[in-house]
């Protein structure tokens, strides 16, 4: 336990799968706290009776269910750091004993 600010940094980093060591967390902690303080200022605004704005446009655009060409695979996968036989190669995502599973779907 390093204090609430540093713990928040470490927890957020874990959720974002970012590697942040204790030293960095001690630097980032107060910076996090300062940024969040700005939002607290915003929260003081009285928005009683004001509809929240979550989208820019309120007119829903839809499309018909017609196939359009996908992009050439190389144009996308080729840009990735570790293309493997048409797949994106990434560092192993689960411990080895779970091999074969699909994981991930929440």
């Amino acid at each position: 336990m390093e204090g609430p600010d540093v713990d928040l940094v470490l927890e957020t980093a874990a959720l974002a799968r970012l590697e942040v060591d204790a030293g960095e967390a001690r630097t980032l902690g107060p910076q996090f706290a300062a940024i969040l303080k700005h939002f607290e200022v915003l929260s003081e605004l009285d928005v009683e009776g004001v509809e929240p704005t979550s989208v820019v446009s309120t007119e829903l655009q839809v499309r018909t269910d017609e196939v359009r060409p996908s992009m050439p695979r190389d144009a996308l996968v080729g840009n990735a750091p570790d293309p493997r036989e048409g797949f994106y190669g990434v560092p192993r995502a689960i411990p080895k004993r779970d091999a074969g599973g699909q994981g991930g779907q929440s």
Partner: peptide
């Protein structure tokens, strides 16, 4: 929306199909 498919090889790599 569905997620892609992650295939965990025997090695240290996971392969992703979107």
């Amino acid at each position: 929306e569905d997620a892609g498919k992650a295939v965990h090889d025997a090695g240290n790599t996971t392969r992703v199909d979107l």
